[in-house]
Write a protein that binds this DNA or RNA. Sequence first.
DNA 1: TTGCAAAGCATGGAAGTTCTAGGTATACTC
DNA 2: GAGTATACCTAGAACTTCCATGCTTTGCAA
Lengths: 111, 111
Amino acid sequence: MNLSKELIGASTQLLVLSVLARDASYGYEIIRRINAESGGIFTWQEGTVYPILHKLELDEKVRAQWQEADTGRRRKYYYITAKGRKALEAGTKEWSSLHGLLTRMAGASYE
Amino acid sequence: MNLSKELIGASTQLLVLSVLARDASYGYEIIRRINAESGGIFTWQEGTVYPILHKLELDEKVRAQWQEADTGRRRKYYYITAKGRKALEAGTKEWSSLHGLLTRMAGASYE
DNA sequence: TTGCAAAGCATGGAAGTTCTAGGTATACTC
DNA sequence: GAGTATACCTAGAACTTCCATGCTTTGCAA
């Protein structure tokens, strides 16, 4: 069993799930929100996020629903599911272990 | 500019560099050491690590040198370079930013 | 009313990555 | 001399993310 690869993919998935755990949202806005909060360390493109949303939906971690906005525009809203919340929690924990290992090892190398 | 992808790859590179920053070592032992210290959250295979070492060498972040062990066995020792140390330091910082973002966002979703 | 920018979703293909699965060879132990 | 541990390596499969691009609709300005 090797978590590493999933952890990696999880870093992007986790960010998306984090946004959706607060409020349902749609692709275009998720991108803007994450890019804003990232403080400029990276910039997601649309082509990065939409496939991730599709995968999350396939995995039943989110549910999608077309809605009409006040502006009259059609948007595909994504809602996090119970499964998605579990994945978010588990992923955050796994991420923390990896981060712990990394700081422990990198830190030790400066002594 | 998008750091994300490099960050990802960096997580594995960083662990290897961390080991080498303490002591020069060779592939087979690096694998054992990291697997031991990971506390079981993942298990690297040889096929994962050797290509990484080759890439690090190509990038001049490590230097390789064949040496004869007491046991009479040939080993390829890897030494971290100045460039490698810089990469380790920079990578650790980038990693921390991402981790900060992640905990900030995931944390906020539980409030 | 025409034209352009922004909002909004989507996909195909390039490039990169790790993992699996194999191969080779030497030393030690029984 | 057979098996196990040490030690290195690579090809190819499978999976990702990223970039470029295309499409449609709405809003606004000239």
